[in-house]
Amino acid sequence: MAKLLRTPVRGSTTGRPIMVLLDVLGQRWSLRILWELRAGNVTFRQLRELCDDVSPTLLNKRLKEFRQLKFVELDEAGFGLTGHGKELVTHFSKLDKWAGNWSQELERD
């Protein structure tokens, strides 16, 4: 996995960890999949339903990437966030709150 963090990604030739993260999160369905896993482990079928029936091929691809990046793990209860994944999603929650406040302000103007 260390090699992945030095590999150039879209928009960056450096492979810096922040650029790799932003590249991964910017892929279709990435944020939604991680967001839906915040409540706990779910089966593949449940996760697909939570994600508005995303293509099973795409869901499998994202889950494989997230497992390699140690954001997601699979156990007898289904797919769930790892410690890194949970920490990442807490940052999403802060952004969600910020976005709610921001949108309210825009609506007032």
Rank of each mutant, 00 (worst) to 15 (best):
A2G: 06
K3W: 07
K3H: 13
L5K: 10
L5M: 13
L5Y: 14
R6N: 13
P8Q: 05
V9G: 01
R10S: 13
R10N: 11
S12A: 13
T13S: 13
T13D: 07
T14I: 06
G15D: 04
G15A: 03
G15F: 02
I18D: 09
M19P: 00
V20Y: 07
V20M: 09
L21N: 03
L22G: 03
L22S: 09
D23I: 07
L25N: 07
L25T: 06
R28C: 02
W29S: 08
S30W: 00
I33A: 06
L34S: 04
L34C: 04
L34A: 02
W35H: 10
E36P: 01
L37Q: 04
R38Q: 12
A39S: 14
A39G: 12
V42Y: 04
T43S: 15
F44V: 08
R45S: 14
R45Q: 15
Q46I: 00
R48H: 05
R48N: 06
E49C: 00
D52C: 03
D53L: 02
V54D: 03
P56E: 02
P56V: 03
P56K: 02
P56I: 03
T57Y: 09
L58P: 01
L59Q: 01
L59K: 01
N60V: 08
N60R: 15
R62K: 15
R62W: 01
K64M: 04
K64T: 11
K64H: 09
E65N: 03
E65S: 06
Q68G: 05
K70D: 15
K70V: 06
F71P: 01
F71T: 00
V72D: 00
D75T: 08
E76M: 10
E76K: 14
G78V: 06
G78A: 10
G78D: 08
F79P: 00
G85I: 06
G85C: 04
K86H: 09
T90S: 15
H91Q: 14
S93C: 05
S93G: 12
L95V: 09
L95T: 05
D96H: 10
D96Y: 08
K97H: 11
W98M: 11
A99N: 05
A99T: 09
G100E: 11
N101K: 14
Q104E: 14
Q104A: 14
Q104I: 00
L106M: 11
R108F: 02
D109G: 12
D109R: 14
